[in-house]
Design a binder for these strands. Sequence first.
DNA 1: GTGAAAGCGCTAACAC
DNA 2: GTGTTAGCGCTTTCAC
Lengths: 343, 343
Amino acid sequence: MSTDVEPSPLLGRVTITDVARAAGVSVPTVSKVVNGRYGVAAATSKRVLEVVEELGYETSLVASSLRRRQTNVIGILVAEFESFSVELLKGVSAAAAGTGYEVLAYSGLVTDGSPTGWERRSLSRLAGTLIDGAIIVTPTVLMPTTSIPVVAIDPHTGPGGPSTIDSDSVGGARSATRHLIELGHRRIAHIRGRGDLASAQLREEGYRQSLAEAGIAFDPELVRDGGYKAALTSDAARELLTRADRPTAVFAANDMSALGVLKVAAELGLRVPEDLSVIGFDDIPEAASATPPLTTMAQPLHDLGAQALQMLVQLLDGHDVPNHVQLPAKLVVRASTAAAPAA
Amino acid sequence: MSTDVEPSPLLGRVTITDVARAAGVSVPTVSKVVNGRYGVAAATSKRVLEVVEELGYETSLVASSLRRRQTNVIGILVAEFESFSVELLKGVSAAAAGTGYEVLAYSGLVTDGSPTGWERRSLSRLAGTLIDGAIIVTPTVLMPTTSIPVVAIDPHTGPGGPSTIDSDSVGGARSATRHLIELGHRRIAHIRGRGDLASAQLREEGYRQSLAEAGIAFDPELVRDGGYKAALTSDAARELLTRADRPTAVFAANDMSALGVLKVAAELGLRVPEDLSVIGFDDIPEAASATPPLTTMAQPLHDLGAQALQMLVQLLDGHDVPNHVQLPAKLVVRASTAAAPAA
DNA sequence: GTGAAAGCGCTAACAC
DNA sequence: GTGTTAGCGCTTTCAC
């Protein structure tokens, strides 16, 4: 019976109930007005809208998504927000503009326990409720069945899972290695990527192919694990570069590792590129501003993200998409590679 | 009475009800087990956990956050995922590791209608339910009362709102302008930032101060709006650079604008830095790889994000935090600035 | 044209 | 120890 209107809800958010009470109508009526459903008197609608405006009400994503079937938000799931994932995110976000979908990026807790399987957990927590579809960056496990459409970027492996998109790791690695060979290098080391990602294996494969083509014997002593991380690369690089017969060039499976090699080389007093050539993979922004600027195989990260989004939207619209899309990688020569030192 | 266990829920996500049914217990019991509450028999707990594992159940963020008071996720709200916001995001994410909080970045639809007020809408949609606290990047409106703790980065304005953090725009702008003056420039143009952000006004203020200190008369004809965007800067830059008495240097309020100036200068056949010096503000990754590499005032974007997160966590823990934190900006000289051409 | 009732998936109180 | 009841904020039938 009370007609008092709370003008400013000082604590707690404004709920649909607050609006209903203030407007003197029922909760469902407010819902209809807010969602533009038919069957509401113009006068009622006007009054409700005024109260909505006055109170600053906005429907709760959480509550409505629990009830509705779709939310019009797509999720991009990453293990961590770092240079690589964030470049993809920019591409996804740019491509999402105008599609009517909002973008929500989520980084689950990777610290507690294994670094593997985070994607399944994140997906379970968000799918079916918060997000209509997901783009998963570097998933480490296979997810044969998911409750919502999924596109994976740089996935664990090929068939059986969701649609995937990546760039040409084998071809890129071949180009990278060939670049070093053409500069006269013969002792070329390789810092491997994360073993649980197909891209890492393919890059090693490309490295071996290039070596074979040039008639250079593969030396297992020159291959070490870097896990796509600068920190993990350090020990490997130190071992490699303190050998009596140290390599004159290093092909790192990604830029973070290459940056790690650069750091170790500097510590060791090795000049890059005079004493040591270093080439990376990805072309993250840090590559260009490294000392010296890093030669690398550029992945079209922005496009990768943008196309992943387009594929996902296709899927959400019920269309078919290719099972696998591959974009080319491109050699970007900067200052960390040069002719091999005279033997 | 049926005891059949669905081994693989092919469509829809696995809910707590599925688990309860499969384990032969009630829904609340599953909830207790999953959340580690006391008062469950060891045997029951074990059985439930097995089913959880088998079915791959993960509690829904949405459903639990609707019921619970807190979710342990903090939201970073941005208008768009671009270089600036994304650098902050990396800092936030890095600082969040180990705090027990997960990070969720959200970019609301800015396209529909005005670019202003998106933050209030996003906040309303997520606060109180999905996220425990929020970091808002470049909010354009004042939000005196919010239902959850909020920290604003590079805000609209000073007092009255949430705690804020930014870097020293006045001091930075003074340094930038002084750098140009010391190089012998006297006709120095300024491309303004977004008028709805305090940082833009403060940078213009710093520019004017430096001019005054050097005894250079302020010329309103040399100040144009760029809105912090490369695209919006183009027209302004073209006007400025086609004048008979064109400036010999430009201080752009941020790097995106500076990049826009570089582009126009190239179109106009002006050499940078020989004919025109350009300095930006922010030091986004693109600055280093621009042609030529951009001289700029570096904001500690990573630290800004990291400290914003720390402040927010303090707030969430019930501690007080300073109302305003300011970090210094630092001159980074690259190749887009040089001595003024002889008059 | 409007409101009462039900329910999305989950958790907190409270019975049993 | 375990299940029943209630309710978070919202939307969807479906009576009235």
